[in-house]
């Protein structure tokens, strides 16, 4: 059997972020179940492509990276359909997110990824992305007016924030951090787990709005040739391990953020941060103002896929 000494697994953030925890567990389970025949090593920080997360997918397709636990946002420059999860206010809650990833939409997206030269195995989660800023609590679209927001990943974010009257700026995290501290940029959007691990309240981000405008599911995937080099038994081990690691990742990513367990939200409130939860009416105002962006991007993502997603969510 012609296996490599080491398989390179790319991720963006390491443990204790849920993302890194999921990747670590995958590596652990595979090593355990193959008796070390498949030895994987996690390279966080997308260091295998010099930290450029939007090149991760290309590098995996080329075999420079063997495997990855990657974000749908970061892979959307290569796979336009992944912009589905960045469609504004498509998914109102976790049940909607699960209806997509665990339903026909998830299967369709895996097919598309296969057509794009990688083998997808399972889903994990970075989380719903919430908006934070240093200026004022955001309850209405008008509150976004003139705020300088750091975004990254896809032009759809520029479109959304422009539609809300904010000034989006594409900026890597390395530059965003000092920009947020100095007030050169007012706000950013990220899952709350990222907010809390990075202590963003110390960067002056003292207003958080839980608006669930987009979610960022993660996908476990393997380069096609590497995948085909494995025996069917090992392929099954890899896939099953990814599913279990993904389930753990999703559980950790939602800890303290579910309806019955708001502990993370409370912890963040404890830092003196104003956390706003939108009412249905308030949320609708944001839905309305970003509707043109939604319609415009439906063409890019694919009419059929968007309708399929809407249907899955309606029947969740």
């Amino acid at each position: 059997q012609d296996y490599k000494d080491e398989y390179r697994v790319s991720t963006v953030v390491p443990a204790p972020f849920p993302w890194g925890i999921a990747a670590d567990r995958w590596v652990e389970l595979v090593a355990e179940r193959t008796d070390g025949r498949i030895n994987m090593k996690v390279y966080p920080g997308v260091q295998l492509v010099q930290g450029d997360q939007t090149r991760e997918f290309t590098a995996m397709r080329r075999g420079i990276i063997d495997m990855a636990v990657g974000s749908t946002i970061n892979w959307s420059p290569q796979v336009q359909e992944l912009n589905l999860f960045s469609m504004p206010f498509l998914m109102p809650d976790y049940a909607a997110l699960d209806a997509l990833t665990q339903g026909p939409v998830g299967e369709r997206i895996f097919e598309i990824l296969r057509e794009n030269g990688v083998e997808p195995l399972a889903w994990a989660e970075n989380g719903f992305r919430e908006v934070t800023n240093s200026v004022r609590p955001i309850r209405r679209p008008e509150d976004m007016e003139g705020l300088k927001m750091r975004v990254v990943g896809s032009p759809i974010f520029n479109d959304m924030f422009s539609a809300m009257g904010a000034n989006p700026t594409q900026m890597s995290w390395a530059d965003a951090q000092p920009a947020l501290t100095t007030g050169a940029v007012d706000g950013q959007e990220n899952p709350l787990t990222i907010y809390s691990v990075l202590n963003m309240h110390e960067l002056g981000q003292t207003n958080v709005t839980l608006w669930h405008y987009v979610a960022d599911p993660l996908i476990f995937a393997v380069n096609q040739e590497v995948w085909e080099s494995f025996t069917p038994e090992d392929q099954e081990i890899l896939r099953q391990a990814a599913i279990e690691a993904g389930a753990l990742g999703i559980e950790v990513a939602r800890e303290g953020l579910t309806e019955d367990d708001q502990s993370l939200v409370e912890e963040i409130r404890g830092y003196g941060v104003e956390v706003v939860t939108l009412t249905d009416e308030e949320r609708q105002a944001f839905v309305d103002v970003t509707r043109p962006v939604y319609e415009e991007w439906t063409a890019t993502v694919g009419e059929d896929l968007v309708r399929m997603a809407e249907e899955s969510i309606a029947n969740r």
Partner: peptide, 21 residues
């Protein structure tokens, strides 16, 4: 490593410099 790994020369020579800071 192997010849596929050498492919990193393509994206990495570019990405190492293409950083905003």
């Amino acid at each position: 490593l192997d010849l596929t790994a050498l492919g990193m020369i393509g994206p990495n020579t570019y990405a190492a410099v293409a950083k905003y800071p």
